[in-house]
Every structure is written in structure tokens, then in C-alpha cells.
């Protein structure tokens, strides 16, 4: 069963939750073969009812200690632009669509999402272009995100500090 996981992080992002549960959005997801939609809504005021969606089976929760399992089980992750969620999703090798909260401009967290978008590791949209993006997006253009190389750091430090 193909799953979509939507995460808003530690705060709230009602506009994303609202848009992604519109009939138009869920139809677009169904047309792509997704059957299950999991929403992590944080402190948001919108808590969709699991019966409210006819196209997909819906699961909603506010917070969990770790969303690693939800990411692992997902075939597509739709996330806010938070660095933690982006890195965790890409680290797990999952296709990622970042929805930027345009009401939070000048947030330094956007720097990373923007760079990762330029390097074609994720797709990028705003709540108002979400539905269109879900219809038109091509996940095959995404390039894999290779893990960083802490060994380079360790080698440099060993040399600089004279470790034998």
C-alpha cells in the first residue's frame, strides 16, 4: 500500500494540512497510486477527521517521539521546510516535497531547503501551488542525496592535532 506522510514539525502549518486534505489534492494523490495518507499536524488547529476523506485512508496525529518510522514506511514525504525533517527524509532516501510556509519568510531554515532544491534533491512549492504540484510533479527528476562524509572531518582533525 503506497503511503504519503505529511509532517509540519514542532509548530503548526494549518494551511498545508487544509490544502492537502482538499478533495482535489486527495484525488491527485489517488491518481498517482497512493492509498494511505498520514498527517502529523503538530499544534495546528485543524485536526481532520479520519472519516472525512473518501479517496484515501487517513491517519492523523499531533506528535510522536520519533517520526523516523513514519518516514521509513512512506513512499512520499510532504514536509515543512524545517532542516531536521528535510535531512531525516533525504537521509532515509525518500522522495520529498517541501511546502514553504510563505508567512515565515526570512527564516534561516529556508536556506537549506532552498539549496537542496537547487541541487535537485527535493521538490519545492507553496500551499497555494500544492495541488498543482501534486498533479504535475515528476519525482524521477530527483537526484539521490548522498550522506555527508564525517571521515573527512576526522582525517583533517587527526592530521591537524598530530594524532598518530
Amino acid at each position: 500500500m503506497k503511503r504519503v506522510f505529511v509532517t509540519v514539525g514542532t509548530t503548526s502549518f494549518d494551511e498545508l494540512i487544509e490544502r492537502v486534505t482538499t478533495p482535489e489534492a486527495t484525488q491527485a494523490l489517488k491518481a498517482r497510486g497512493y492509498q494511505h495518507l498520514v498527517l502529523q499536524v503538530g499544534r495546528g488547529s485543524i485536526l481532520p477527521d479520519s472519516d472525512s476523506c473518501h479517496e484515501l485512508t487517513l491517519e492523523v496525529f499531533r506528535f510522536k517521539d520519533s517520526i523516523a518510522e513514519d518516514i521509513k514506511c512512506a513512499d512520499l514525504v510532504i514536509s515543512h521546510a524545517g532542516a531536521g525533517s528535510c535531512l531525516e527524509t533525504l537521509g532515509a532516501g525518500k522522495p520529498l516535497l517541501v511546502v514553504v510556509n510563505d508567512q515565515l519568510m526570512n527564516n534561516h531554515q529556508l536556506e537549506l531547503a532552498d539549496q537542496l532544491y537547487q541541487d535537485a534533491h527535493l521538490l519545492y512549492c507553496t500551499p497555494s501551488t500544492l495541488i498543482e504540484t501534486l498533479k504535475m510533479m515528476d519525482l524521477s527528476v530527483l537526484s539521490p542525496f548522498l550522506p555527508g562524509k564525517p571521515k573527512n572531518f576526522a582525517d583533517f582533525l587527526d592530521k591537524a592535532l598530530g594524532v598518530q
Binding site: A83, H108, E111, L112, D114, Q115, G148
Partner: peptide
Amino acid sequence: ESVCRVES
């Protein structure tokens, strides 16, 4: 510096 810091 954190990997989150790209420009500043």
C-alpha cells in the same frame, strides 16, 4: 557550523 547554514 551546522549543515542548515548555507548562506549565513
